[in-house]
Structures are given as structure tokens and as C-alpha cells.
């Protein structure tokens, strides 16, 4: 029996993390921690679930996965997130 393809080809949970979707991005979010009120709205609304932070450390996005959709910047109540052109 093959070691690679198991019958049923079921796969491990969360294995999509190998797929770094950050490469899709045209714009990236820049967080202004001085303005950030740590409300966590951006974290709630990130379609990828890759914004992290807390009251103490303020928020940032995991750029390995961020697709640059801009929802966080649009939803931020104090407009502390700016979408900047990605330069690679």
C-alpha cells in the first residue's frame, strides 16, 4: 500500500497553513500603533483570521498569509491601518 496516497486521501487538519497566500498581495496593511485603540475589530473581520494583538501589544497582520483585501483598513474605527503598495 502506498505511503503517499492513503485510501480516501483524507488529510491533516489545518494543513493549508503550508500555503502562504501572502504572495497574492498587491497592498499590505501598515498598522499605526500610536493611533490604535486595540479594539480588535480588525482581528474579528479579517477573512483569513491572521490579525493578532492585544491591549498591550496592539495589532498586526501575519504577512505570510495576508491577501491584502483591505477590510481591516476599511473597518478600523480610528483609521490606523493604511494599505500600502507592496514592493517586492
Amino acid at each position: 500500500m502506498s505511503k503517499m496516497l492513503k485510501p480516501g486521501i483524507n488529510v491533516k487538519p489545518g494543513s493549508s497553513k503550508e500555503n502562504k497566500t501572502g504572495s497574492w498581495r498587491n497592498y499590505y496593511p501598515k498598522f499605526d500603533h500610536a493611533k490604535c485603540i486595540a479594539c480588535g475589530t480588525c482581528e474579528t473581520y479579517c477573512p483569513e483570521g491572521i490579525i493578532f494583538g492585544d491591549k498591550e501589544h496592539k495589532y498586526d497582520a501575519d504577512l505570510d498569509y495576508c491577501k491584502g483585501c483591505g477590510i481591516c483598513a476599511n473597518i478600523c474605527p480610528v483609521k490606523c491601518i493604511e494599505m500600502l503598495l507592496e514592493v517586492r
Binding site: S15, K17, G49, I50, F52
Partner: peptide, 18 residues
């Protein structure tokens, strides 16, 4: 600090997918 979500990143939905 990253919350453990039950839908992991790396999925291939369009950017901004509702």
C-alpha cells in the same frame, strides 16, 4: 497572540471574501 481559529489560513478564497 494569534487566536487559534477553526478555519486555518492558507485557504484559497478570493481576497476579501465575505
Amino acid at each position: 497572540l494569534m487566536k487559534k481559529h477553526l478555519l486555518a489560513p492558507g485557504h484559497t478564497a478570493c481576497a476579501g471574501c465575505g
